[in-house]
């Protein structure tokens, strides 16, 4: 398939995953505003901003005891993360970019996929923070996460299983892995910044990835940070775990096949294998888990670069006709 189309589908997958992740984080964070202690709310905002490598508007967050201030801050932060046009990671921008990539590859996706995504985008145009805040922000964010699920369902039901499909899935998986790693590292960094974290902070982490019940079933009701990390990193059955995500990446790369240059394609595959082997074979025994997570985050960025060089931006030698 045309490299540029493949690249657009790959990025469409990435942006949709990012939009959904951000929506999920904000859904839980705005739900917490109803009844959770102020410290937990600040910890949550901190974690989100650290993971997205962005400074909150107005600089670092300062803990305040006033509910009034906490709610006012939260309003500003949610606006920044949802509708702010100058924030490239805002939900608005993620949907706009996903739609833009879809628009450029409309001949590669089904009409149903395009119509659904276009409708989500058009609906989002008419909203602003004031309007969602006055009703139920968590319902709004939950709607967006399910919009992405519906889109993927529509794609699953209608998209031809050609390379385009695999690039879409590959983009999603690469993004999913990077987001999870960034969020786990942010949890550890926020913990260091706030000098402590509560059990509830780790529970909310599990909740983000739909893993609370699985944790209770596999471990115990007592939440241990190490067990949470084990579950989110190495559980082979949890859909959001790093282990599952890397398996998906491997499967998609197998389905796509080699690019034009064997050497770069080989490096890319070796790196994907190396990432998976760290999870499968090294993780259970490592002591400095933060260090390994950081290394994995670096690998996953390199993997993205190699995917780009293998399929989208490879070098070509040109001869001139006489």
């Amino acid at each position: 398939m045309l490299s540029r189309s493949a690249q657009s589908l790959y990025w469409m997958g990435r942006y949709l995953e990012r939009a959904q992740h951000q929506s999920r984080l904000l859904q839980l964070q705005t739900a917490a505003l109803v009844d959770r202690p102020v410290q937990e709310i600040y910890f949550g905002w901190s974690r989100i901003y650290i993971s997205s490598d962005r400074l909150p508007p107005g600089g670092f967050l300062e803990l305040t005891d006033s509910d009034e201030f906490t709610l006012a801050d939260s309003f500003t932060l949610a606006d920044d993360l949802t509708f702010e046009r100058s924030n490239p990671g805002s939900i608005w921008n993620c949907f706009a970019m996903a739609r833009e990539n879809a628009r450029q590859t409309r001949n590669c996706i089904s009409l149903e996929m395009w119509s659904h995504l276009n409708l989500v985008y058009l609906r989002l145009q008419g909203r602003d923070i004031q309007d969602i805040w006055s009703t139920s922000p968590e319902t709004f964010y939950a709607g967006l996460t399910s919009d992405v699920d519906t889109f993927m369902g529509v794609a699953g039901a209608t998209m031809y299983r050609d390379e385009g499909w695999h690039f879409l899935q590959l983009g999603r998986a690469v993004e999913k892995g990077q987001l999870l790693l960034a969020y786990l590292l942010a949890q550890l960094a926020a913990e260091a910044r706030h000098d402590e974290s509560t059990e509830e902070d780790w529970v909310s982490l599990l909740r983000t990835y739909h893993a609370v019940e699985v944790y209770d079933r596999n471990y115990s009701l007592d939440v241990q940070p190490n067990h949470v990390l084990d579950l989110l990193v190495s559980d082979p059955l949890l859909p959001y775990s790093l282990c599952q995500t890397l398996d998906t990446i491997g499967e998609q790369l197998d389905a796509i096949g080699r690019g034009p240059h064997a050497a770069i394609s080989g490096s890319m595959r070796r790196l994907a294998g190396r990432l998976a082997s760290v999870i499968h074979y090294e993780w259970p025994d490592v002591t400095d888990r933060e260090d390994v997570l950081r290394k994995l985050a670096g690998f996953s960025r390199d993997l993205h670069d190699l995917i780009t060089q293998t399929y989208f931006d490879y070098e070509v030698e040109i001869a001139v006709a006489t």
Binding site: L2, S3, N107, E163, I256, V316, A319
Partner: peptide
């Protein structure tokens, strides 16, 4: 295929498009 100029190149008098393979 819907292509842009940057997707095509001319090599030895023939036109090619850049694909994933």
């Amino acid at each position: 295929e819907l292509v842009e100029g940057r997707d095509l190149l001319v090599n030895n008098g023939y036109v090619y498009m850049r694909t994933t393979a």
